[in-house]
Design a protein around this nucleic acid. Structure first.
Lengths: 219, 219
DNA sequence: GGATGTGAACGACTTCACAGCG
DNA sequence: CGCTGTGAAGTCGTTCACATCC
């Protein structure tokens, strides 16, 4: 089986937008499969997440020829294919840095566990927190980072620390061998090219919303 | 003074990407102004947020002719212009629905207050929470929503409730006259066209990260 | 010289439209 | 007939390159 059978840019390079939609398709597919739907059409999928059916077909074409003309797509097969290209048909080990309000919210967020993301280490620089148990995990000091991350083979790191610590913590995580970072600090963080970085900037999102309300534009 | 002097699409219609970058410019500008920099060039701004100088100039051109050839842009002026087009040169009243872990994290998030977003109402359907004070605000039941939102002229709502309540709560907020929604629930929420919606989907972001690490692509 | 503003080229993503298959 | 897969067209966003101005 090929990892990337179909083209989205001649080879297996998927656009960021396509990857985002794959996550949305996946969620909807799991939902409809739970309700017993064995088959789904591009039209149904498109309506569910608010895009055109043509877009859905273009995206799904990257997965190979899974669609059956006149019928649609087999839900189970689609789910497996999407999980496979996204790389989430396995467990990912995740570390959380910053066990404050946001960090705890992320820890308790069911959606992560359900998709195979497993928290295996917590870090915080606050001495009052280190040593305590949170959600069944012991909070460690930043000085234990390299050792713990290597020992547990942690691949992804969630950065839920204040802005002024973000770059330092990111550097430490990179140093420790992390492969990807999800940054929640409202600051632009730099990582070397071999490390992936996704930023979730709440201030930016809220300002976008204010802009849209302000102007009356549809996003 | 024109609201949208320059073109980004002939009139004042700004692309989503441009609006996102405006937020990032703004943050960086406030930072450098604090350090005393009166002038900034497109090259400096671009390097700070990781894009080309041409892109910066194209964006800033939408604000009118603020740049001085050979010199750069005046920080103070740029900040005022960006805040103005984003619509954040005033206070926005915000309601939070869902006072769980994520909700409390959002409440305590300093970045919102600093930018003029003011929480004026909290709602939660948990009877154990309603009536309590959180961050100086009383938590109300969902049944008080319409009255409270109208009374406080709340314009924006943050949705930090579980997926299965998200659409219901969104409908209630719309009914109550909200103008924009920031949805954190991992589900696609529908609102009428006159209401703005921005979604922050943590599962999608984490899956994006996994994909990039998985394939070795740069985002 | 140094930096802006901008048409033109380029590239990326989306929609259209239709052939082809079940 | 219904629905997929896909070239072609269209739209949107970014980068280039250079005239222009301080």
């Amino acid at each position: 089986m090929l990892l990337f059978p179909g083209p989205n840019g001649a080879d297996g390079r998927l656009s960021r937008a396509t990857v985002t939609r794959f996550s949305l398709y996946l969620r909807h597919l799991e939902e409809v499969l739970n309700k017993g739907a064995q088959k789904v059409s591009s039209k149904q999928l498109g309506e569910a997440i608010g895009i055109t059916d043509a877009q859905v077909r273009k995206d799904l074409a990257c997965l190979g020829n899974l669609g059956q003309p006149g019928i649609g797509y087999a839900s189970v097969e689609l789910i497996a294919a999407i999980r496979h290209v996204l790389g989430i048909d396995r467990v990912w080990s995740v570390a959380l840095v910053g066990v404050g309000n946001l960090g705890r919210a992320l820890l308790r967020y069911k959606g992560f566990q359900a998709r195979g993301f497993r928290f295996v280490a917590l870090f915080d620089k606050d001495p009052a927190l280190t040593g305590q148990q949170v959600e069944g995990l012991r909070v460690r000091g930043l000085e234990d980072m390299t050792e713990t991350i290597k020992a547990h083979k942690v691949e992804l790191g969630l950065l839920a620390v204040p802005s002024d610590s973000a770059q330092f913590v990111a550097d430490s995580l990179v140093q420790a061998g992390i492969r990807g970072l999800l940054n929640f600090a409202p600051v632009v963080v730099r990582v070397p090219p071999e490390v992936s970085l996704v930023a979730v900037d709440l201030t930016v999102q809220l300002e976008q919303l204010a802009f849209h309300v302000h102007t009356g534009n549809v996003p």
